[in-house]
C-alpha cells in the first residue's frame, strides 16, 4: 500500500491555512500538519486594531473554529518553533527536539517586524503589534486618550494609527524611509500623502530632518512613559513607542536547508525553492519576476492567500505560476484619505 503523503506547512497564517485547505481538496488522503509558534488558531492580524474597540475575546478573532481543523483532519502543532530543516533527510526539528518527516514542505512563516540595527539597544522600551497577545499588551498599558509614537510608519502601522485615532488616542508618526512601506512613494507624491495623513489627524514628525534618533528613554514619574531624543536634541514624549519598519522574512531556521535565501526564500513563479520538495509562499519568499529580472516580495492579503493556493496546487503536481492580482499603488479615497490595497481583505 502506498503511504499517504505528509504535507507539512510552517506557519498558520492566511497563506498556510489557505494552503492546507487547498491541499485537503486536492489530496484527500494525505496527512497535513501545520506547525506554528502561536498558541492560538489562525486569526487575521488585520483585525487586531479592533482590540482597541473593546474586542478582547481571542475566540472572536478566530477565522475557523477548532472543529474546522478536526473536520479537515489537519494536524496543528501550536507553540512549536522550527529550529532546523534537514532537506536531505526531509526532516524538520522542532524547538522541543521532536523531528517530523515530510514529503513536501511549505514554508509560509511570514515576516516579523524589522527593527533597524541602530535601534536594537532600545528594543525593551518599545512595543510591537505582531500578535494578539502583543496587541492586548499595548491595549493594557495605553492610558485613555493616550499618545502613541510610531516609528517608521509602514502600512501596518498606519492602519493601526487610523484606528487608534478613531478610538480617541493620538498618534505621532516619525517618518523616514520606511513610511508607507511596502509602497514606494517619492517626491511630490509623497508630499501629497503626508498631507493626507495630517488630514486623517495623524501627526507626523520628520525623523530625517532631526538627524535620526539618538536614544529612547523611560519618561520621568508623572510624565508619559517614554521619551525619544533626536540627534538634534528634539525630544518627543509618548505613552507607547511602536516600531513599524516593514517586515523582515522569518527564515533563520531554513539556513541549514538547501533552499536559497537572500533576504527571503528565493522561489520561482511556481513558488518552488531550489529544493524540489520545499515550497515557500507569503511574506517569507522572494519570487522571481521574469519581466523585471529580479526577486520581488509581494505583500498584501490577496497576494499571500493566492500564494498559499498556488503553492498547494504545485505541491500536488500542478505547475501554476503565481500572478499578483493586487494593485500595489497607494491612493487617496474620495474624502482625501489614504487608502491602500494592502489594507483590503475579505
Amino acid at each position: 500500500m502506498v503511504q499517504p503523503k505528509h504535507h507539512v506547512i510552517i506557519g498558520s497564517g492566511i497563506t498556510g491555512t489557505q494552503a492546507a485547505i487547498t491541499l485537503r481538496e486536492r489530496d484527500p488522503k494525505s496527512r497535513i500538519t501545520i506547525i506554528t509558534m502561536s498558541t492560538l488558531l489562525f486569526y487575521n492580524r488585520y483585525d487586531l486594531p479592533d482590540v482597541f474597540r473593546g474586542r478582547t475575546d481571542w475566540q472572536s478573532f478566530l477565522v475557523y473554529p477548532p472543529s474546522f481543523y478536526e473536520e479537515l483532519n489537519i494536524k496543528l502543532r501550536r507553540g512549536s518553533r522550527v529550529v532546523n530543516v534537514d532537506s536531505t533527510r526531509k526532516e524538520i526539528t522542532l524547538g522541543h527536539k521532536e523531528t517530523i518527516r515530510y514529503d513536501t514542505l511549505l514554508v509560509s512563516s511570514g515576516g516579523r517586524g524589522y527593527l533597524p540595527e541602530e535601534l536594537v539597544d532600545f528594543r525593551s522600551l518599545m512595543h510591537n503589534f505582531a500578535t494578539f497577545e502583543a496587541a492586548m499588551n499595548v491595549k493594557k498599558i495605553l492610558p485613555e486618550n493616550g499618545k502613541v509614537i510610531m516609528l517608521g510608519g509602514d502600512m501596518l502601522g498606519l492602519d493601526l494609527a487610523r484606528n487608534l485615532i478613531q478610538c480617541g488616542y493620538t498618534v505621532t508618526v516619525i517618518t523616514g524611509e520606511h513610511t508607507f512601506w511596502p509602497h514606494t512613494v517619492e517626491g511630490n507624491e509623497r508630499k501629497t500623502f503626508m498631507k493626507a495623513l495630517e488630514s486623517m489627524k495623524v501627526e507626523t514628525f520628520d525623523g530625517d530632518k532631526a538627524e535620526g534618533i539618538a536614544s529612547i528613554e523611560e519618561g520621568k514619574k508623572g510624565k508619559p512613559a517614554r521619551k525619544i531624543i533626536f540627534k538634534d536634541d528634539t525630544v518627543l514624549e509618548g505613552d507607547v513607542v511602536m516600531p513599524f519598519f516593514g517586515l523582515a522574512p522569518a527564515v533563520e531556521f531554513m539556513i541549514g536547508s538547501d533552499a536559497d535565501i537572500e533576504r527571503g526564500l528565493l522561489v520561482n513563479p511556481e513558488l518552488r525553492t531550489t529544493n524540489e520538495h520545499i515550497f515557500a509562499a507569503g511574506d517569507v519568499c522572494q519570487i522571481w519576476d521574469k519581466k523585471d529580472k529580479s526577486y520581488k516580495f509581494f505583500y498584501g492579503w490577496k497576494n499571500v492567500r493566492a500564494m498559499g493556493e498556488v503553492a498547494a496546487k504545485n505541491m500536488t503536481g500542478d505547475n501554476t505560476a503565481f500572478v499578483t492580482t493586487q494593485d500595489e499603488k497607494l491612493r487617496l479615497d474620495k474624502k482625501g484619505q489614504i487608502n491602500s490595497p494592502f489594507w483590503e481583505y475579505d
Partner: peptide
C-alpha cells in the same frame, strides 16, 4: 530528541 508524535504537543 523525540520521534514524531512522542511529544505531548
Amino acid at each position: 530528541g523525540v520521534l514524531e508524535g512522542s511529544h505531548i504537543s
